[in-house]
């Protein structure tokens, strides 16, 4: 068995038992001191570069959540709603056509949020303009081009439709 697969469980047990148990102990505490949170932070930092550890922590997160009743009938519908919200919120428009960004820049300029060039490059100036626009319509002001932002920015439903149809195909 190769050492870089998840089927070598004996090796995994040997290498990861200590760190996973420490993670479970800290994760199961009702409150965390700064020192305990720093320890957790170090474990999570290690998981950022270690695929097996990351995999194990997720599986044990599942167990911990089950044990703490965080995956029960009371919580799950809330999670599903939040997941749906995130899908909507985090959908960003990233077409490759600069004409799309020029259209956005023009809309921002027409509404007084953008004073830069209509160059089709969605750079820092454009992001700042989006931030100001988002704040003005009570959206989270982070410069991220979400579906909600584009829909609010478009002056008419027809324009919104044109903009949202410009999305690049999913090539994940």
């Amino acid at each position: 068995m190769s050492s870089n697969t998840i089927d070598d469980f004996d090796l995994i047990a040997q290498n990861y038992q200590g760190i996973v148990l420490e993670y479970c102990f800290l994760s199961g505490l009702p409150t965390l001191t700064d020192e305990q949170a720093d320890l957790l932070d170090r474990i999570l930092a290690q998981a950022e570069t270690d695929e097996i550890l990351n995999f194990l922590l997720i599986e044990f997160d599942y167990l911990i959540a089950k044990k703490l009743n965080l995956l029960d009938d009371q919580h799950l519908p809330q999670y599903d709603n939040q997941q749906a919200y995130l899908r909507e919120y985090l959908v960003q428009f990233t077409p490759e056509d600069p004409a799309y960004y020029r259209t956005l820049q023009k809309l921002l300029r027409d509404q007084g949020w953008y004073q830069g060039l209509l160059d089709g490059v969605f750079g820092e100036d454009s992001r700042q303009a989006i931030k100001h626009f988002q704040a003005s319509v009570h959206l989270q002001s982070n410069g991220v081009l979400t579906l909600e932002t584009v829909l609010k920015l478009a002056p008419t439903p027809e324009a919104a439709l044109t903009l949202t149809r410009s999305r690049s195909p999913d090539d994940r």
């Binding site: 997720i58 997160d61 959540a65 995956l71 919580h75 799950l76």
Partner: peptide
């Protein structure tokens, strides 16, 4: 994995 991360 989504529910697990949200639960976390």
């Amino acid at each position: 994995d989504a529910r697990i991360i949200i639960a976390y």
